[in-house]
Amino acid sequence: MTIVRNRWLEIVTVAIIGVSLFRSMTVVADVTQGDVQRIMYVHVPSAWLAFLAFMVTMVGSAAWLRTKDQRWDRLAASSAEIGVVFTGLAIVAGMIWAKPVWGQFWTWEPRLVTTALLFFIYLGYLALRRAVIDPVQRARRAAIMGIVAAVQIPIVYYSVNWWRSLHQPSSARSIDTPLRITLLLGVVAFTFAYAVLLRRRLELARLEEELDAKRFEQSQSVAGADITAPSLASHPHD
């Protein structure tokens, strides 16, 4: 039974995803859009995860700045990596959904625009991490960028929303209860998937750091040790 004890989160997640998938496929179809509307059960939960993951990154960033504990940096980085995947998924799913419904892949809906920008903010954050070699410097710079971005994201959203509301009325409409329950189930399933992935990624990050430490023990060199006496002899009176 150890496998159940060690893998309970995975097992629960697979079960919830299964139920959510079944529900998404069998729940009554949307009256106006038909079956294509079912993509909402992927699109909306992905978008939710995109924002959740970035919030976790911000929390990790702030906690690192306070404590300087590398575990918080690992949390921020791992969450951002998962976040960028789900942000991409939300955008692609949204475009697939939009094409048959609106006749085009893209609309300038505020949440869509914000999600797209979030994708690039994530990419920049990860590119910054990749460009800094020293772990402490990387953590510090990434934490600052993570927090500055997090402060700006709500302003980004409100500015697009505001702009949009001036140009056309909001297209938000209420959805029926069975559909709403299915959507909620999808959100729960995706959140569990996030937790599983995050746990795995954190474990991987920890192992990477251990490996680095081991490598360091074996290959450590003291400054100056790589420079030896020159073998080129001097021949002053040749």
Binding site: I133, D134, R215, F216, S219, Q220, S221, V222, A223
Partner: peptide
């Protein structure tokens, strides 16, 4: 002080 895999000071 350690920078990367190099010990500068100990």
């Amino acid at each position: 002080l350690r920078l990367g895999n190099t010990i500068i000071l100990r």
